[in-house]
Write a protein that binds this DNA or RNA. Structure first.
Lengths: 210, 210, 210, 210
DNA sequence: AATGAATGAGCGTTCATTCAT
DNA sequence: CATGAATGAACGCTCATTCAT
């Protein structure tokens, strides 16, 4: 199960790529504003600069657009992540760096990320697994990094904790977009990143431990 | 800004309360299954046991129902929380207890919680603040508890960290519903609660600290 | 398998009957003119004096209208036939009478009959059998009449021939509508009836028999 | 009024003939399966092995294809008929032979015949007469044959009866395709041919005559 | 002569909402 | 207070046809 094939009536693969890119871009903006259900296919066509007929030359259904949007956003996030993280032996510093990079990417693409997490539920039972797969792939990046750091002896976590920590990192990134109505008022991205990194890795300074 | 007033054509306040309760109950079940947009007012009326005409005697628009649903779910969570947490001086044990209680409540009402977080975005700009307010109230419960624990000297956090920790607790509860497709496979609620409590309060056992 | 149930959102059975009657009437006229596929649901709604929304309160799909149209036409033909033929012991005179009555009915309802035979093929595989059943019921009326006449000893036919003759009568009736572009130019209904009756029952005066 | 001229953007007459032949062949198969209205021009182009653009180089509109299809089917039936009947002086045996041949041809081309009679009504008022003309030409073949047989003194029919009998023969052939859902269950082609020939020419053995 | 991307009018259908009873 | 028939704007989608290449 790699990526879902979305059939098109147009034959030129290059053109498909290009046109779909334009459509996805327009769709993201509209979904951002009004959500998937409140956005009409005509609006998407118009905002992409195509007729409704042309839109349907490149997709089969409105839901295809949502899938392409989700897929494209994941791809965007992943790409930026890979660019900036690179592969190294694991270390706590590297994990911290990765968290910062990830939070940065999420911040840059906050609208897209928000759209994806809020609308993905509208995907059909057929398409959903492909998107969840992508989410797991992203989690896996952090899992691997943490696992290596554990292997290097810099962190002390069992396998289950590794996975949960990776989950938590992902979620805190998403929350920066989900709850921005609240978080943005209180923290800058840098503050949020520093504080969450601190809490994620060291927890609360806790006198009861003593 | 307390609760939003939803006007009704019916005068009898008792009746309004009762009927709306029935409508909300039916609506939650339908939203759970099909989401807000895919649920029709006719379906809600039918599932509530009323005619479509009667439905509109008690609300003005479909969105009113969504508002009432969100409000009612928050109320449900809050009620259960208050019942089981009570007010005490703060202590780390008390915080742990509260986390466990909260995660439990979220687990019991997982469908409702999911509905609320996924559909609230469909509320109009007018209604949304009322719901976000509710979210802040819930955060405040944990903030207060943590703040007291800090005051008791059992935790060492500044005000910003108090708020972020409260926020994180909330988020990890929601995450149990949001990401259940993945988490449920790996952990039981108890495991999840224990591990998250551990990570939230003590962070990762971290040799680099030494 | 009696008649196909066509669900309606409206509860009042009397009203359903009435409204559907109006819709069918309007639809027949439009189908006559433009055929089923070229007629839009909006045209049918308008010609019935309803909004498009009201139309869909009484039917589920455009095809339902076609089914109701076919059903209603068969019912019309059958009713008129039963009214005028009555049940008697079979006799050649009675058969002749029945043919004349049937041809008359077909002539009166020629537009409807034409519509039915030309458009029934557009019914779904699910609905078609119900309509074919109706056709067989009509054939059965003539079969029975002929069979009785054979039993009375006035005609000499085996069972297969009885059925084929009944079938031929039906077909010659339909032919009066199908090929009216040609037949009408040459014969009046009375002439057509007389000549076909003659040919059906006595065949060609045939010297080679001698 | 011979055959309708269908303009083409292509000059090469040979090529037009060839390409249209391929298009018609593909179209017949598709119309058979789904009817004229449910078949798209794209499907026809694809099934013919051409692009949609090329299709429109050889016809002006979808309806042109229907006309060509009908014309081609008539031509096919006529050709087969001429091949096998030949021209002779009329005789009852010859008429019987012609009926058998015609029923055979109709049986062989039953799908095509069905398509033609069911879809011809979708032709525009402009094209329809050309197709009806073809039908009359076919009737004329039988009229002539019967007329000759009358002249030979083997049958006793006036001119009107000649024409009606020819009509009836045509119609009974068509009915073998139209009503095959019923007839095929009861009779083989041979039985049907024999019985109809019997009834057409000799009518019912009728004791009331005596 | 051949291609196929582009077009947009028009289709069948839905559903939140109203209002006469 | 309760009902449910009526409404029509708006939706997702199709497909015959055109025309630049």
């Amino acid at each position: 199960m790699a990526r879902k094939e979305v059939p098109s009536l147009v034959k030129d693969e290059k053109l498909i790529e290009k046109r779909r890119g334009e459509m996805v871009k327009a769709a993201v903006n509209l979904f951002k504003e009004n959500g998937f259900h409140r956005t009409t296919t005509r609006e998407i066509a118009k905002a992409s600069g195509f007729s409704i007929g042309t839109l349907y030359e490149y997709i089969r259904s409105k839901e295809d657009i949502l899938y392409l949007v989700c897929d494209s956003i994941y791809e965007g996030v992943r790409e930026k992540l890979n660019e900036q993280i690179g592969t190294t032996e694991g270390s706590v510093d590297h994990v911290k760096k990765a968290i910062a990079v990830y939070f940065n990417v999420v911040d840059e693409m906050q609208d897209e990320v928000l759209v994806m997490y809020q609308e993905a539920k509208s995907l059909s039972r057929e398409a959903l697994p492909y998107v969840l797969k992508r989410e797991l792939e992203m989690t896996a990046i952090f899992e691997e990094l943490i696992r290596q750091t554990v292997e290097q002896g810099e962190l002390d976590l069992n396998e289950e904790e590794v996975r949960l920590l990776a989950h938590n990192i992902l979620v805190h990134g998403q929350m920066w977009t989900f709850r921005r109505w609240s978080l943005r008022k209180e923290y800058s991205l840098e503050e949020y990143t520093n504080m969450q990194t601190q809490l994620l890795l060291y927890g609360v300074k806790n006198k009861s431990l003593i």
